[in-house]
Design a protein around this nucleic acid. Structure first.
Length: 419
RNA sequence: GGAGGGGUAGCAUAGUGGUCUAAUGCGGCGGAUUGCUAAUCCGUUGUGUCGUCGAAAGGCGGCACCGUGGGUUCAAAUCCCACCCCCUCCGCCA
């Protein structure tokens, strides 16, 4: 959330950012309301000053008779102030609403573009092996060997709520533990956080106001199910001033994630590709501003490490301006090659939000020189489970229809094959 | 869900209608003293916003901010109402 003054003084920069991200903002109305607001404030402050002086005079006079006319005058000011203040309040609410739809500014290193075709593949890792048999898509083989089941999930809840069974459930649990252990070993502090958050937290990380329809909403309490651990974890330090020596702070959290995926039906919705509830291990960094782009690269490296250890071929994609999320200033996606569905599937998104989320969540740090400044926040999946499971099922498939357990998961699963 | 207590600047605390223009302590920053450290002493101290000066850093002046939002009053940290959060107890419950 930009301060009103910043918006006024940097309006061209912000206009450009919104345009690059394809975000509509009513700039004309902003300028009109901003002028009106300042006019009203000047008027109000003058009246308030007069009234204050009068009030002080009244408090010092003891003779009741000479006070009466002063009170009459003061009452007049008071009524006037109340009326104009009401108007001002309404205008400020409108301005706030407009500002809340101004997106973060893309970093200069982000390629300009409209959609996924303008993204840039920055590297590829791992070898895509030629197979001498037809690799089956995960939904065929997964249901056949009984590690997950969609129809039973549909019975319990609805479509796209998978049930993992036996070795499948074990695989889920193993992946979560493997990832957590890995990240903890690399300096991330584990936290366990609520999966339900309030409106304020979602606004702070930038999911609101734009994505309200994509989330599960608990009307009685005005709470939401989290779409990602980014929300509760980034908000851990809401309204705090951190010490410079405490930074950077690295967190890792496992949470379930809930997404309504409104309007996504029919698009990449087979099998485990797009589901309403899934598991994810998330990395969050709170850092000093001058380090955030270096931190983004190392964050990306942490997420890549997961796939490297699982030995899954992937590529790293730098998102163009049009694909960048509302709150992000730079973002890399990691996509695993899945030979069954013959597609790269996104398993991680690593973003730098610069001070965008920190401003909204009011997270600052005190510098050595005594001044306070907003921190920068970053997060990245490390990584999301369902598509990683797709990657494992499809890359580790044998001709007989079995799935070899990746080396690093064997100590967690105590088996070397899923049959 | 019910009853009571509480929420005041980075932290801790005082303030129950009008010198509150929010006190005090700690911490932070600057300085003095000083073999070093510590202690002591002096000074300083938050956020937002409007106007104005300035290239800028910032200065000057005003207004607002005591959990959030309303209300009463000439005047609210203080009184009233609603909500949120924390603590104690009771009830219910995996």
């Amino acid at each position: 959330m930009y301060p009103i003054k910043f918006v006024r003084e940097n309006i061209d920069l912000l206009k450009k950012a919104a345009e690059l991200k394809g975000q509509k903002v009513d700039w004309e109305k902003f300028e009109q309301l901003d002028n009106e607001r300042r006019r009203l404030i000047m008027f109000l402050e003058e009246r308030k000053k007069w009234q204050k002086d009068l009030t002080e005079k009244i408090s010092k006079i003891e003779d009741k008779n000479s006070v009466a006319p002063l009170i009459t005058q003061a009452r007049k000011y008071s009524d006037e102030i109340k009326e104009v203040e009401k108007k001002l309040n309404q205008i400020e609410r409108e301005i706030e609403k407009i500002i809340s739809f101004i997106p973060n500014i893309p970093h200069s290193s982000v390629p300009i573009g409209k959609d996924a075709r303008d993204n840039v593949v920055v590297r590829q890792w791992g070898e895509i092996r030629e197979r001498n048999f037809k690799v089956l898509p995960h939904w065929e083989i997964g249901e056949k060997i009984g590690i997950f089941d969609f129809s039973v999930g549909a019975k319990i809840t609805g479509s796209f709520f998978p049930v993992f069974k036996e070795k499948g459930a074990l695989l889920v649990r193993a992946l979560i533990n493997f990832m957590l252990d890995l990240h903890i070993k690399n300096g991330f502090r584990e936290v366990w956080v609520p999966s339900i958050v309030n409106r304020d937290s979602l606004f702070n990380t930038g999911q609101l106001p734009k994505l309200e329809d994509d989330m599960y909403y608990l009307e009685r309490d005005d709470f939401f199910l989290i779409p990602t651990a980014e929300v509760p974890v980034t908000n851990l330090h809401k309204n705090e001033i951190l010490k410079e020596e405490d930074l950077p702070i690295y967190y890792v959290a496992y949470t379930p994630c809930f997404r309504r995926e409104a309007g996504a039906y029919g698009r990449e919705t087979k099998g485990l590709i797009r589901v309403h509830q899934f598991d994810k291990v998330e990395l969050v960094k709170l850092v000093k501003p001058d380090t955030s782009y270096d931190e983004l690269e190392t964050l990306l490296g942490e997420a890549e490490k997961v796939l490297q250890l699982l030995n899954l071929p992937y590529r790293v994609v730098l998102l163009c301006t049009g694909e960048l999320s509302f709150a992000g200033s730079k973002c890399y996606d990691i996509e695993v090659w899945c030979p069954g569905v013959e597609k790269y599937l996104e398993v991680s998104s690593c973003s730098n939000f610069e001070s965008f989320q920190a401003r909204r969540a009011n997270i600052k740090y005190k510098r050595k020189d005594g001044k306070t400044d907003y921190i920068h926040t970053l997060n990245g999946s490390g990584v999301a489970l369902p598509r990683t499971i797709i990657g494992i099922i499809e890359n580790y498939q044998t001709e007989k229809g079995e799935i070899i357990v990746p080396e690093v998961l064997r100590e967690y699963m105590k088996i070397d094959k899923i049959t």
